[in-house]
Write a protein that binds this DNA or RNA. Structure first.
Ligand SMILES: [Mn+2]
Ligand SMILES: [Mn+2]
Ligand SMILES: [Mn+2]
Ligand SMILES: [Mn+2]
Lengths: 219, 219
DNA sequence: ATATTTTGTTAGATCAGTCTAACAAAATTG
DNA sequence: CAATTTTGTTAGACTGATCTAACAAAATAT
């Protein structure tokens, strides 16, 4: 069984992997906030468990087994976040840190019960998909708000970043998942975007913000 | 901050301590299921943190600081058990193992929210008191069913043992906290006790069982 | 194509938490 | 009280997860 540390490495590997399932040692070190030699030694451990393939000087390759372990931890993380928001009244900006700990609890029934109580949700409070109990993840492709054009009407569907600071920024503007936005115009100089929604008749979002917002086009 | 391991040692120390707050190294080793040298080395660590006093060949003495840390972990454990039973539909026999893990989560709001949602309960699903947020524990003294006499009417209030097997034994007989029992007779030979309750008109409980049941006398 | 930078490896150390083997002190028993 | 048993200590080793220092390979830039 994966240790807490191993589970955290596997999650990072899962998130960093490219189409070929490759991850560079140094990316992983940056992501995990540990030194290169620490990662070097950890990938050898993960290889012994069959969760990745390691060859000297090559990017590591996460195996299907490794991906499954990672997806099941991510499942526990996202179910927890959803439970905290929907059943315990937390704000979407408060739940990540708690879920980071709860995801390591070994108690299948605990998470099954959460899932049941929520009616088997498929996305978490930040719009990310919740992997199923087999570790399968259904990827939905959304548009980046930053790629939308003036005149379009879209619905906020997910975020590419869920840091507390960003979530608090969105709270401050009453922006939440499901909010419908009308794109009034886009500034050519800095790509900032002018939108209207709810009782906000004209709000400007910088590119730094709009590129982190994923939307669904409303026809 | 106490590590998970340290928290588990402190809980055991808290539970094993006598009136003078003393615990023998070997009791602790038995309780924690580790070797004597492991405990010997751990108590030196706990002393460095101010959680106990250690002198060679003497029982260790848990300090008020140590007791507080322990009580707050026990608080998280018991709040979790109560939440699992009252808010998530688990049976009282299923919750201990999960709580054993959840008690180590560092997220005050998570437990405050549980507490709030349940209306600030003072006992856990097994009748044990829940320490308050300052680590103060209100001890209620109950009678042992094994000390009761024929003719008395009592209410099941708590358990001195909460193993899954014992809880399943009680489930099998519809015995739960709050059940009112009439003591019909007591067998002098083996101290077994004959009781009636609910639709059970005569059920025999061995001393092994009755000594684990704590009751309140009904006048 | 060489120099420089970036990326990755090895060696060796540290800390937490555990163990066994050997021994010593304290408690119990006859 | 002496012998035996129980309890506690020390020494030394191991594993998991981390680090720094030194170095080597690969990638990039001049
Ligand atoms: Mn998260
Ligand atoms: Mn985590
Ligand atoms: Mn318990
Ligand atoms: Mn525990």
């Amino acid at each position: 069984m994966a240790s807490q540390t191993e589970e955290n490495y596997l999650k990072s590997l899962f998130n960093l992997a490219n189409e070929k399932n490759e991850v560079n040692i140094s990316e992983l070190a940056t992501q995990m906030q540990v030194s290169l030699p620490t990662v070097n030694s950890m990938v050898k451990t993960l290889q012994k468990n069959g969760w990745l393939i390691y060859e000297k000087y090559k990017p590591v390759i996460i195996t299907p087994e490794g991906k499954k372990v990672a997806a099941l931890v991510i499942r526990k993380h996202r179910l927890t976040e959803m439970f905290l928001v929907n059943k315990m009244g937390f704000g979407w900006e408060e739940v990540h840190e708690i879920a980071e700990q709860v995801e390591h609890i070994h108690a299948p029934k605990f998470f099954e019960r959460m899932d049941e109580m929520m009616g088997f949700p498929t996305i978490d409070p930040h719009g990310s998909p919740i992997p199923d109990a087999q570790g399968r993840i259904q990827e939905i492709k959304y548009l980046n708000l930053s790629d939308c054009k003036a005149g379009q009407v879209v619905k906020l569907a997910a975020l590419t970043n869920s840091s507390t600071e960003f979530l608090e920024f969105l709270n401050g503007r009453n922006l939440r998942l499901g909010t419908e936005l009308s794109i009034l115009s886009k500034e050519a100089y800095d790509q900032s975007i002018l939108i209207s929604y709810l009782n906000h008749s004209s709000e400007t979002l910088s590119e730094k913000v709009s590129e982190k917002l994923l939307v669904k086009l409303l026809d």
